[in-house]
Design a protein around this nucleic acid. Structure first.
Length: 323
DNA sequence: GCAGAGTATTTGCCGAGCAG
DNA sequence: CTGCTCGGCAAATACTCTGC
């Protein structure tokens, strides 16, 4: 089994077009010995649009843009690229490979070529499985740094090389071949066929998705219970107390922690306060230490008094003892 | 059955951080 | 610059309840 680590650069990327200007690859054997490494440069047949006018925002590729008109067009180099990707003796792999495969797919459509058809691995996805983090993406640079791999950004063949070194580093840490690594994390490779792309999948990722869903439902359940509780208890509200004519709002994390939120709500009603669900309309905003976010900011902007749940407990608790 | 209030769910927006 | 996904909100919409 050989591995084809590849990366693609585009002159421009829009919803329905991605004009490829470079296909870089690094072909290795099972032990990551390089068999071939090359940047295939392509005339994108269109301008470079990756930055604003000033060049302050966006991306500048490390190529001379003016040279690209003299390179062969995508249909001219496509047979070579296709042969590399579709060789049954190699597994194609990249970093966030889904993007690159999409670009290939768009170019196939743009030039009325038959659909690409191959399986592909994704080192970013393998990395995420290894550290068990799925709620955010990791850039090629940050993964390289984490694994002690050097790289030069955005020259396609160099990105492909860095991707290979990342795969190698992960394999070395675990003493496995790349294929075995995929097996270990029960990763099913992605695939493109009939102009349709299927993403990489794994057991851990599926479990994460399910877990995230469950947590969301649990939060929702707690929230409903809290709302019901408020509904019931507000009828017991005293007419007098230190929170008379004051509206109190809890942060969402606090609301959802029923063991804390219920007693505090009872205490606030005992002190004659109202409960309000809108942070921007409250007089007191109660939160857990360390929270941030727009709700606490809007409460602060309104001039509400900000209290941690411990401070609020102390405030209502001490005063309650008097009454 | 209706109006109004209050609750539940859906929708849409924003900022991050990623890709080119 | 565009485009994608994610998480976190708020605004909008849909639904339910209540009193008549």
């Amino acid at each position: 089994m050989k591995y084809l680590f590849f990366d693609i650069e585009c002159a421009s990327v829009f919803k329905n077009t991605a004009k490829i200007c470079a296909f870089g690859y690094c072909l290795t054997d099972e032990d990551f010995h390089i068999l071939e490494k090359e940047d295939i440069l392509v005339n994108p047949q269109g301008g470079f649009h990756l930055t604003d006018r000033k060049g302050s925002q966006g991306l500048v590729l490390p190529y001379e843009y003016k040279d690209f008109k003299k390179y062969p067009t995508f249909p001219e180099v496509e047979p070579r690229i296709r042969a590399l990707l579709e060789d049954p003796a190699t597994l194609a792999a990249g970093h966030a490979t889904m993007n690159d495969v999409k670009y290939l797919n768009l170019e196939a459509k743009r030039f009325s070529l038959s659909s690409f058809r191959f399986d592909f691995a994704d080192t970013q996805f393998v990395y995420m499985n290894r550290i068990g983090v799925f709620n955010r993406q990791f850039g090629l640079g940050s993964i390289a740094e984490d694994l002690g791999v050097e790289f030069t950004p955005h020259r396609a063949a160099d990105d492909a090389y860095a991707t290979m070194k990342i795969a190698e580093a992960m394999c070395r840490e675990e003493g496995l071949t790349f294929n075995r690594l995929l097996e270990k994390y029960e990763i099913r490779t992605g695939r493109i066929e009939n102009y349709e792309v299927r993403q990489n999948e794994s057991r851990a990722h599926a479990a994460y998705v399910e877990e995230a869903q469950k947590k969301k439902e649990e939060r929702e359940r707690a929230r409903v219970e809290f709302h019901n509780y408020i509904d019931r208890e507000k009828r017991r509200r005293r007419k007098e107390g230190i929170l008379k004519n004051k509206t109190v709002c809890f942060s969402h994390p606090l609301e959802e922690t029923l063991s804390a939120s219920k007693p505090l709500a009872a205490a606030l009603f005992a002190e004659g306060g109202f409960y309000g669900f809108r942070a921007e309309e409250c007089d007191y905003y109660v939160y857990f230490e360390g929270e941030s976010g727009p709700r606490i900011k809007s409460a602060a902007a309104r001039g509400a008094r900000l209290l941690t749940e411990a401070e609020f407990a102390q405030l209502t608790g001490r005063e309650s003892l008097r009454g």
